[in-house]
């Protein structure tokens, strides 16, 4: 069973729809015991960092997520909340990845909205994926490059398109909205 963490951050059901299309059963939940028992955990999210962090802290999810032992996949805001802090409302985040989240400079259109490819890729999450494959991004804030960066893209500057540390994986793009390429990435995660 795959747990999708349910919280106040946007359309979490689209992840469940994507898992259904791939033939995987999933449960939308904010119950710590239930989440801990699942084989995989997906931490999705769109929206604003500080209100999402407050919600997680109030419900023990703030302690739970960094303590999980099974493979965890953060998506979009999920990735940003797994970093150490975000410039968005100066939010302290979960601190899984040792990097900070900044706002894109106004030299580019903000948000970055649409399909972008990779400049660097590594690891099992991207098995079968090539640098010129495109995935769907929609974000105003980005995680800076760090030792945990496993995929790098460029939007006016290079940024972390994906991060990994031990059992924690995260993508800034939306695999559940990235057509066939996104399905390959989700399947790679589910096969870990």
């Amino acid at each position: 069973m795959i747990a999708i963490i349910k919280y106040n951050a946007g359309n979490v059901r689209s992840v469940q729809n994507a898992l259904n299309r791939l033939g995987y059963e999933s449960v939308l939940t904010n119950d710590s015991d239930e989440i801990r028992k699942c084989e995989k955990v997906i931490f999705p999210g769109v929206g604003e960092a500080s209100s999402a962090m407050n919600y997680l802290k109030e419900r023990e999810l703030g302690q739970l997520i960094p303590s999980l032992k099974q493979p965890v996949l953060g998506i979009c805001l999920g990735l940003q909340l797994m970093c150490s802090s975000s410039e968005e409302a100066n939010t302290n985040c979960l601190g899984i990845f040792d990097t900070v989240v900044k706002k894109f400079p106004s030299t580019e259109l903000v948000p970055q909205m649409g399909w972008n490819n990779f400049e660097r890729l590594e690891g099992d999450l991207f098995r079968g994926i090539e640098l010129n494959d495109d995935v769907y991004f929609i974000h105003s804030y980005y995680a800076t490059l760090c030792d945990d960066t496993i995929a790098q893209s460029n939007y006016g500057l290079p940024f972390s398109a994906a991060l990994q540390k031990e059992n924690f994986y995260a993508t800034q793009f939306h695999p559940e909205k990235s057509a066939r390429i996104g399905e390959v990435i989700l399947k790679n995660f589910l096969a870990l």
Binding site: R13, S14, K177, A179
Partner: peptide, 8 residues
């Protein structure tokens, strides 16, 4: 639509 399509 949300159930069947995999783009935004």
């Amino acid at each position: 639509i949300a159930a069947e399509i995999n783009i935004p």
